[in-house]
């Protein structure tokens, strides 16, 4: 089976990459398999769980829903790019302070989704955090309450 490959240029965590991919290759696969971004987790492959959430040009997207060829020219950020020389961001710090993660499989995706959400809504209510900020992500361990607490705490710090 020979499939024509396409050349795609993407910037990942500040570094530019040129890759040659089959049209069916997903962005999540490219990031994990070609660029070593194993912080992106693949929980469902069907855009439900959000464990593969990254930011593309500042917007959070589930990387399993994008073909790599659609990401040509995009600027992608993952959770690994948030901390500044090992200093956690307010959101990351709030997640550990509030015990907002257990197994941690969903965490990199949730942090990226929340990071973008708080750009738009700097003072969310708990209801907004549950219904909007965390709308696209599943967590099977925490029951979410501590994640809601962490987002609240982080939002307060951003004020």
């Amino acid at each position: 089976m020979t499939v024509e490959k396409e050349e795609v240029t993407v910037t990942v965590n500040g570094e530019s990459h040129v890759v040659s991919v089959e049209p069916r290759e997903l962005l999540s696969q490219t990031l994990r398999e070609r660029m070593g971004c194993t912080e992106i987790n693949i929980g469902c492959e069907s855009a439900i769980c959000g464990a593969c959430t990254v930011q593309s040009d500042g917007k959070s997207v589930k990387s399993c829903t994008r073909f790599t060829v659609q990401a040509d020219g995009a600027d992608i950020r993952t959770v690994s790019d948030l901390a500044d020389e090992g200093t956690l961001t307010d959101i990351q710090q709030a997640f550990t302070d509030e015990h907002a993660l257990q197994c941690g499989y969903c965490t990199p995706g949730i942090v990226m989704a929340v990071d973008e959400y708080l750009d738009h809504n700097t003072d969310p209510s708990r209801e907004e955090i549950r219904n909007e900020a965390l709308q696209g992500n599943l967590c099977r361990c925490t029951g979410y309450e501590n994640i809601v607490d962490a987002v609240e705490t982080a939002a307060e710090k951003l004020d």
């Binding site: 912080e39 993952t78 959770v79 690994s80 956690l88 990351q92 550990t96 993660l101 941690g104 965490t107």
Partner: peptide, 15 residues
């Protein structure tokens, strides 16, 4: 606070 959190939050978990 948990000792295991920092690695996860920095994207360093390895499954």
């Amino acid at each position: 606070s948990r000792k295991e959190d920092r690695k996860v939050l920095l994207g360093g978990s390895k499954g």
